[in-house]
């Protein structure tokens, strides 16, 4: 059903997010996939990630600043620590996960990286950990008699 989308009025006069920020955010998404090795072919999810980012900005205009800030912070962190160490710090630093975010790194962790993780898991990242074929947020598909059930069933367990 075609419906008018919700759009925050503050977005009406906002500049679009620069293309290099989109690319930097996809780079972060790829690092999530590689760090946990739980989603193959991240490139397949690029357009969905950008739609997800657009949705976040559509509802919450401040996300435009979050993504720009994340780009800057990650550039600085990578320059200082190197790529692998920088992303490991982003994903695992305990202090950066303390709410509310009060440092640039904690802002990136909580408002960008953690949300990308939720998005990534809902796109299929959950499968690597549990063997499940469905997960809250994943669009597993309809239950159509005669076709595979879109979640693990008791019959599957019996086999």
């Amino acid at each position: 059903m075609y419906q008018q989308q919700i759009n925050h009025p503050a977005n009406l006069s906002a500049e679009p997010l620069p293309p290099e920020v989109y690319e930097a955010m996809f780079d972060l998404f790829e690092h999530i996939c590689h760090f946990w090795d739980n989603l193959d072919n991240p490139q397949n999810f690029k357009s969905r990630l950008f739609v997800f980012m657009d949705n976040r900005m559509r509802l919450h205009p401040e996300y435009r600043s979050f993504y720009i800030q994340a780009n800057q912070t990650l550039d600085e962190l990578v320059e200082r620590l190197g790529e692998a160490a920088a992303y490991k710090m982003l994903f695992t630093d305990t202090a950066a996960n303390q709410a509310p975010p009060q440092t640039p790194l904690s802002l990136v962790r909580q408002k960008v990286s953690n949300e990308f993780i939720a998005f990534q898991v809902s796109q299929g990242g959950f499968k690597a950990f549990t063997g499940a074929i469905n997960y809250p947020g994943y669009i597993a598909g309809a239950f159509i008699p005669g076709e595979p059930v879109p979640y693990r069933t008791g019959q599957e367990g019996a086999q």
Binding site: W36, F91, T92, N97, I117, V121, G125, T130, Y135
Partner: peptide, 20 residues
């Protein structure tokens, strides 16, 4: 804890596999 929360909390893959 969900898989998402374990990742967000910085647990490594092998620790998540063990936890589930």
């Amino acid at each position: 804890s969900s898989v998402t929360q374990m990742m967000q909390n910085g647990m490594l893959r092998q620790d998540i596999e063990k936890a589930v």
